[in-house]
Write a protein that binds this DNA or RNA. Structure first.
Lengths: 331, 331
DNA sequence: CTGAAAGCGCTTACAG
DNA sequence: CTGAAAGCGCTTACAG
């Protein structure tokens, strides 16, 4: 390992003190122009790079944010991460990615890593399964700001940035009712997830208020069960003319092959509405109608919230990202 | 900011020296069991966490790998990142993500960040545009191992881990020839990318060797041009019975809507073969035939190579990931 | 304008 | 079995 240049090395070469070198490199007013010039020139030549460990050891925190997600390659998180990296870079921060793979132990361990590395803040989408409240509390004790996004704890006073799940559910119901359906089939994710609960609540609330006669079957994709298996309970004639509502891209990816395999055509045989970031729905023919969930927008929103906290606006709050309807040809 | 516990704080409470506390916590044999017990108990109580800055300052490098990509949310990189994170975690490392957005300046800056943070190693997919050789060289000077993946520099002696692009091209040509096509249309990415060159070479080499009569139009999607626009030069009757070859998922996503819009059916009106990670091709009906590029596998391969380098096997080499054919119904 | 010194939190060779 | 001391590379209050 080549020895990287240090302030000491530069100071030795130039026969000035380390303090002077340090000051010269940061353009401190106390240093004479001539000294500055000599120091900077040599620093350049020696390929000097400050040492983050030494700097952070004094500052007691790093220029690193952590993003903790169940997994990176989901339909949504990578675009969230992309947006956060972008914003972070513009503000001089970098990001560390940690996956918790729906394993509470890993999640705790990831939070421990955040403490170990004294990150400036944590963006976290929590696991499906249990809620790691003690681990979350510990971050508070360490004064490491946390912004929960997408999958957030149902209980507890935390900073949250989410899709407006209830609104998305209500908007879905509204569109379904408008199309004249008296009954539909909703395919939802795990019933323990906050997003499932929110979206389903949105549907129920809307229906009970504006269309009490409309009913729906509610199927939950849980415990690794496949969408296809769940839907197999219906015969083609039972599905004829019906509407399928899909809670997410993940579920959409189960529904599409199912429809293909059954030979059901959109929208002649069956209608389809999904919640999605919009990428997949636009690839199909006809394009699938969707309510937009935008990972990039949510990432920017989360970053803004984090910036506010770092700037001192610490009062805990919950922000919602409004959703919009895209009209395809699937219903 | 709550003051996190330090060795000093523990040593004060227990009236032992800092050295003893440090040794006790790492189960050093020199320390008496009784002292160990007391130290560990208090450390637990005080929620002690070692300080990575102090540790790394001594070790002179961190437990952090950097992954540098043009962008995270491409069809490929997020699964690569996912695999690297997974492997890294198992070995006690974390990963930092940096995007270079096809901007050479950003790329250099990201490499500077890697030096600043004394990362243990860098995984990098380079920009389309220019090649940043001076910046790459500098990393060598700093003895920071680099593993290039997917988009790699054409020149220079570097560790590379890639799809077998030539092989993928050749395999594609083989399948096309087998289906009896005398002429086809290849839709490729930017001609300056190593993967474009490799894949096209593979096709040409195969054809000149085994099927010299077979010809193809070669279209390049470059400078933000759209696939649809490129293909618009062909009338439906010109396309009838033809085969389209798509170099990547990105291009596939342009071709599919084009076919839908033109009302061309697979495989009756037109055939389609793509190179892909396999996710999208399997969603369509019929499923699109593809040659597999697997981001996860490539990530694991890259990590293995990195591990070898860290273990001392420093001799530069290039590894290729074999590709496989998946038979759908699109040709 | 410049420098010596203390300190961030840790590890480890050395002495006892 | 335990401790005092040096040192990793930097910044900054203090003294001159």
């Amino acid at each position: 390992m080549r020895n990287p240049a240090t302030l000491k090395k530069i100071s030795d070469h130039l026969s000035v003190s380390i303090s002077t070198v340090s000051r010269a490199l940061k353009d401190h007013q106390d240093v004479s122009p001539e000294t500055k010039r000599r120091v900077k020139e040599l620093a350049e030549m020696l390929d000097y790079e400050p040492n983050s460990f030494a700097i952070n050891l004094r500052k007691k925190h790093s220029d690193l944010f952590a993003v903790i997600v169940p997994e990176i390659s989901s339909y949504f998180y990578h675009s969230f991460i992309e947006a956060v990296e972008e914003e972070a870079r513009l503000k001089g921060f970098s990001i560390m990615i940690l996956q918790s793979r729906n394993n509470p132990e890993l999640e705790s361990n990831n939070l421990r890593l955040c403490r170990y590395n004294h990150v400036a803040g944590v963006f976290i989408a929590v696991n499906n399964s249990s809620e790691n409240h003690p681990a979350f509390k510990k971050m508070e004790d360490w004064d490491i700001p946390m912004v929960f996004f997408d999958k957030v704890p149902a209980e507890g006073n935390f900073n949250k940035v989410c899709m407006a799940d209830e609104q998305a559910g209500a908007l879905s119901a509204e569109k379904i009712v408008q199309k004249g359906h008296q009954h539909f089939i909703a395919v939802m994710g795990s019933p323990s997830m906050s997003i499932t609960i929110g979206r389903e609540n949105g549907i129920r609330t809307y229906l009970s208020k504006y269309a009490p006669g409309v009913t729906f079957d509610c199927l939950y994709v849980d415990h690794g069960e496949k969408v296809e298996t769940l839907l197999d309970r219906y015969s083609n004639s039972e599905l004829q003319g019906k509407l399928l509502f899909s809670m997410s891209d993940e579920i959409l990816c189960g529904i599409i092959p199912f429809l293909n395999q059954r030979g059901l055509k959109l929208p002649a045989d069956i209608s389809l509405l999904t919640i999605s970031n919009g990428f997949l729905p636009r690839l199909f023919s006809p394009q699938v109608c969707y309510i937009e969930t935008n990972g990039n927008k949510l990432g920017k929103m989360a970053f803004n919230r984090m910036s506010e906290i770092l700037d001192g606006k610490k009062v805990v709050c919950e922000r919602l990202l409004d959703c919009e309807y895209f009209s395809g040809g699937s219903m």
